[in-house]
């Protein structure tokens, strides 16, 4: 039950939505965009979120796109997680979002809502962080498409009045060898201690030795985390550690664990020390699994 009233708008175009936002903002209605709405409803109930106007973007056609084009996958922000799971164009994404909340809730939770949520796990972003993905953002000045690395730092950096329209992922990245693990204490649903998604991507680099230069092909591990800190992220430093070809698996993991960004979350899901322990085990599992794939 929401203890306050708000105005409700359901625009049918991007243009209408951003215009509405601007007007409502001028009227000091603290408007917010509404997609699945599950988080908005639950936070409003306990007075953590307040607004005088919501703009439901579920009728905007671009936000409901789900198709695999010639070389990219386009996912509208308003797609419920289960719809994306069922289409299964991007298995790593399917595996990752399947662990969010529970299935009935995922019939309502949308991918855009999860990525833009206040609840800090935002695990749906992880597969995009480790692939060549772009973000389509709408604002009063029109629509822009940007590489995810440029706009996602801990959270999606949206300017006032902007909203997420689509996620676009390179087709070549959809079927890389991957692993996605969500670790919880002792239960099968709900928030993680840590969530790790990783993929192995073909890469090449020049190796120099005394006599000549050679182009070496190898597979680079790309990895992103949620639950370790109060935001999801991909760490270049940890990736460098894990991709040190000359190190043993244990050495890689030890090195990576020494580079975890502090402070580690210490909350009712688990202590910081325990999270580190789980992280170390999980990284070992990730590496050994990807090695055999």
């Amino acid at each position: 039950m929401i203890p306050f009233n708000f105005e409700y708008y359901k625009p049918s175009s991007i243009h209408e939505a951003v215009q509405l936002f601007q007007r409502l903002d001028t009227e000091e209605k603290q408007p917010i965009y509404y997609s699945g709405g599950t988080e908005i409803i639950s936070l409003a109930r306990i007075n953590i979120l307040y607004t005088k106007a919501i703009i439901d973007i579920k009728s905007i056609p671009e936000c409901n796109v789900l198709h695999l084009e010639k070389d990219q996958l386009v996912l509208g922000a308003c797609l419920p997680l289960t719809e994306i799971e069922e289409s299964n164009f991007y298995p790593l994404l399917t595996k990752t979002i399947q662990e969010i909340a529970d299935r009935t809730a995922r019939n309502k939770i949308t991918i855009g809502g999860n990525i833009c949520g206040q609840i800090f796990y935002r695990e749906a972003i992880l597969p995009f962080l480790i692939s060549n993905s772009q973000v389509v953002i709408a604002g009063i000045h029109g629509i822009k498409t940007m590489p995810i690395q440029q706009v996602f730092h801990q959270h999606l950096h949206l300017k006032k009045g902007e909203f997420l329209v689509q996620m676009i992922t390179e087709k070549a990245d959809l079927h890389l060898p991957f692993i996605s693990i969500k670790k919880r204490q002792q239960w099968d649903t709900g928030y993680p201690l840590i969530t790790v998604t990783a993929a192995k991507k073909p890469s090449s680099s020049f190796i120099e030795n005394s006599s000549n230069q050679s182009l070496t092909n190898y597979e680079r591990i790309q990895i992103a985390f949620s639950g370790l800190n109060p935001f999801p992220y991909r760490s270049e430093e940890i990736e460098r550690d894990l991709n040190q070809q000359h190190l043993s698996l244990e050495q890689k993991v030890d090195l990576a664990t020494s580079h975890l960004p502090e402070p580690i979350l210490d909350d009712f899901e688990g202590s910081a020390q325990y999270r580190k322990f789980v992280m170390k085990n999980t990284l070992q599992h990730v590496l050994s699994t990807l090695e055999v794939q």
Partner: peptide
């Protein structure tokens, strides 16, 4: 009223939905 327990589950167009989250 928080989407956690499922007691309010209804069917919308063939899909189960928690009616407290809608």
């Amino acid at each position: 009223y928080n989407g956690d327990c499922g007691a309010c589950t209804i069917d919308i167009n063939g899909t189960p939905i928690k009616s407290c989250l809608m």
